[in-house]
Amino acid sequence: MGGFCALSCSGSDIVMELSVTDLAVGRGGIPLLAGLSFGLARGRALVLRGPNGSGKTTLLRTVAGLQLPMAGRVEVGEDSVAYAAHADGLKAALSVAENLRFWAAVFGQSGIDAALRAFDLEPLAERRAGQLSAGQKRRLGLARLVVTGRPLWVLDEPTVSLDAASVAQFGAAVRAHLGHGGAALIATHIDLGLEADVLDVTPYRAAADAMAATDEAFL
């Protein structure tokens, strides 16, 4: 395991939820990050930092399995990732409860009450998602994570358009998730009040002359 592991996994008998080895990721054939290695144990959170366009989103999408790594390995348990990005995938025509119930059913879970409670959505349960404010929508999007029942949360800027109280609520939800043995990989700029390790991706930027795998055959 690479250098970062020392921070996140203190003992050898800890169950790893995610381990990344010498990973390189890129978008549209252009490499963005390279040489990444880190691990994430149960009950831990890892916060990714780095300037815009540094490849945090691409890294998260790769971890979530939405795109293939350009090099290296991502090891996660099968069906263990719940991914949440800028777009929440909410349907404006469905009510809050219906949106959540749909995702619960897709992930083979039942019961949405805990999720509603965690994000204070109970009063809004019968409201159409289209009528929610941006912050309320965001909370609904995050509540979706709870109903997936998946151990590893992969979150891309989860606190966009949340006010201070909601951020605290979100922090509490993540803490509860970690307390139940979950893990979270979060790209964010603000302090969530979590006891989390921080990984700045800036040093891992792919070197300027590292060529895309798709194009190097032509050089």
């Binding site: 549209g28 054939g29 252009i30 300027a208 002359d209 060529m211 895309a212 194009d215 190097e216 032509f218 050089l219």
Partner: peptide, 20 residues
């Protein structure tokens, strides 16, 4: 077509973003 790709790769190496 190969030369188009090669040109694209060269330009991408030169400065990212101008590739497309």
């Amino acid at each position: 077509e190969i030369r188009v790709r090669r040109t694209r790769a060269l330009i991408a190496r030169e400065g990212r973003g101008a590739a497309a």
